[in-house]
Design a protein around this nucleic acid. Structure first.
Lengths: 215, 215
DNA sequence: ACCTGAACACCGTTCAAGT
DNA sequence: ACCTGAACACCGTTCAAGT
């Protein structure tokens, strides 16, 4: 059972998928190639195909391992607070494995490993008072928001990026872009990071309570 | 001015970018390679590098051309209705050029061509009564929602996909996934297409009115 | 049975050569 | 000046051969 690439001994598929996930987390989707992974793990490239039929299947296995890493929040307080804790936990999980949002892209998630995370969210929505027939739509909205936040906003926009954005907006011709310039001060703050996520989440929860629930 | 790949004559960068966008729209990001584009357009591969310093720069040019294709909605009625029309226009635009959401990925949009679309959205938010200091955040939320919708939900989920999803959910062990099973009927409907987008949008607008505006 | 090197059909891009 | 083929350092995967 003493594993390790350096021994050159037999590997379990899980160990390989774990190594793949490590590359994905550290360097992103483009950095993961079959040749490099095989090298890093100490086997011939083609041996990977004995464990996974294709790179896609390898990615699925990596996503499964990432799913195990989801940390369910300690739930307490009113339903709305629980839902908020849940959304923060999902975002934190995605930020630990940012390539998941790229990998999933268009195709819907049907793996049980990931659906366990959805199950928890659905339970909370029902607890918030959303009728069962609307819960799927409400969940879809929350899902779109967290995944979209991670996909389209930098987790920690650097001061330099904030400055560059502000400068870029301020350089626009005022007659063509009056509204953007009026809101320029806020634009840098809304660029990414925690603040826009948290504010957006509250707006979403307001909307969900107003339309569906009593909270 | 009579262009066309078959002539083998000089091409404008815009024509090349247009051909690149056509490939992106029809077959997606993976289908676009420098070699194929050069072939299709009737020039040597390396000639492309006289027009664009890199593939990234070519993609930027393609995005600019796509941005020209945005159709501003005919605005009428109360602000909320105008905002709704705007969001539908943005979604329709993204659905015509779905690879834009992939291309933009993490990095924020700073091209004037795309910012013209943002400008319109910001104007509407200010019209809805959102204070200038919050408008950037509100816009970010709407942006995250449209881009997320296009990125993570199929535009027109096939009947087969709906069936497969429903079957997949129903196959889950009931004791582990009670909430998902309770909402299973709605899950297929919430999978993608117009309905979840439109419902999500109304919830968003509710939340924005409640928090920021009078509408 | 299990593992894998060579080969195939691709990439983006540099560099030097063609006109 | 403008264009481009060859070459470099990569891809995922098939296929046949090695043990």
């Amino acid at each position: 059972m003493s594993s390790g690439a350096s021994t050159g001994k037999r590997l379990y598929s899980g160990e390989i998928a774990r190594a793949a996930l490590a590359i994905l987390d550290a360097e992103g989707l483009d950095a993961l190639s079959m040749r490099r992974l095989a090298d890093e793990v100490g086997i011939g490239t083609m041996t990977l195909y004995g464990h996974f039929r294709s790179k896609d299947e390898l990615l699925d296995a990596a996503v499964d391992i990432a799913a195990d890493d989801f940390e369910p929040p300690r739930l307490s307080g009113p339903p709305r607070r629980q839902l908020r804790l849940y959304m923060h936990a999902v975002r934190a999980w995605l930020l630990r494995h940012p390539t998941i949002v790229q990998i999933r892209g268009q195709e819907p998630i049907v793996r049980p490993s990931a659906l366990r995370i959805s199950e928890l969210g659905m339970q909370l929505l029902l607890g918030l008072g959303v009728p069962a027939r609307d819960a799927a739509h409400a969940f879809r909205l929350l899902f779109t928001f967290v995944f979209g936040s991670v996909a389209f906003s930098p987790a920690e926009p650097s001061a330099q990026l904030r400055r560059a954005t502000a400068a870029g907006v301020l350089a626009l011709p005022p007659d063509e872009f009056p509204a953007l310039l009026e809101a320029a001060a806020g634009a840098a703050a809304a660029l990414g990071g925690d603040e826009p996520f948290e504010l957006g989440l509250e707006v979403l929860l307001d909307g969900l309570e107003h339309r569906f629930g009593s909270g």
